[in-house]
Simulated assay, not measured.
Amino acid sequence: MSDSPPTPPQDVPSGIAERLTDQSQNVLRDIARYADELAEHREREARLAEQDERSEAIEAEADDLPDGVPGKATITVKEINDHRYYYWQWREGDQVKSKYKGPVESDE
C-alpha cells in the first residue's frame, strides 16, 4: 500500500472528494457502507421499474390478443415461400399451438 492518499475516481465530484478527505476512518467506513446500500437500493428500484414496464407491456399486448389465444402466447416470425408472417404461439400440454397474426412489414 502506498504512503500517499488514494486518488478519487474521475466520476466523483470534486466537492464530495474534498469533504471525504476531512473525515475520520470510522466515518469513511460508515459512508462506504451507506454508499453501497444506496447503490443497491437504486439498482433494485431500477429493476422493479423495468419489471413494471415489462408487465405493463405484456398486459397491453394481452389486451390485444385475439379470441382463443392465451395471455402466455408469444409472437414468432415464420418464413413461408420467401414471405414472413407473424404468428401467436403457445404451448398446450405437449403441443405447440399457433394462430396467424399478420404479415411482417417490409421495413422491419
Rank of each mutant, 00 (worst) to 15 (best):
D36L: 13
D36H: 12
D67W: 03
P8V: 03
D107G: 14
D36S: 15
L65R: 10
E37L: 14
P103N: 13
A60Y: 02
D94K: 11
K78E: 08
P70G: 03
W90E: 01
K72M: 07
I80K: 15
L48N: 13
Q95S: 13
K97R: 14
S106T: 15
G71M: 01
D82N: 11
G102N: 06
E56N: 15
T7N: 02
D64Q: 14
E59D: 15
I31D: 08
D22L: 09
Y100I: 15
T76M: 01
A49P: 06
E50V: 04
S106Y: 08
N26L: 03
S24L: 03
R29G: 02
M1I: 09
D22R: 12
P13G: 04
Q23Y: 08
G71N: 00
E18D: 09
E43N: 09
R91A: 11
P5L: 01
A17I: 04
A39Q: 12
A57T: 05
P66D: 04
T7Q: 05
K97H: 08
L20A: 12
E59G: 10
D67R: 00
K101A: 13
A60M: 05
K78T: 03
E79W: 03
D107P: 09
Y100Q: 08
R33W: 10
S14G: 04
V104K: 02
Q51R: 06
S4V: 03
L48H: 15
L28N: 02
E43A: 13
R91M: 12
V12P: 03
D22M: 09
Q51V: 10
Y87D: 05
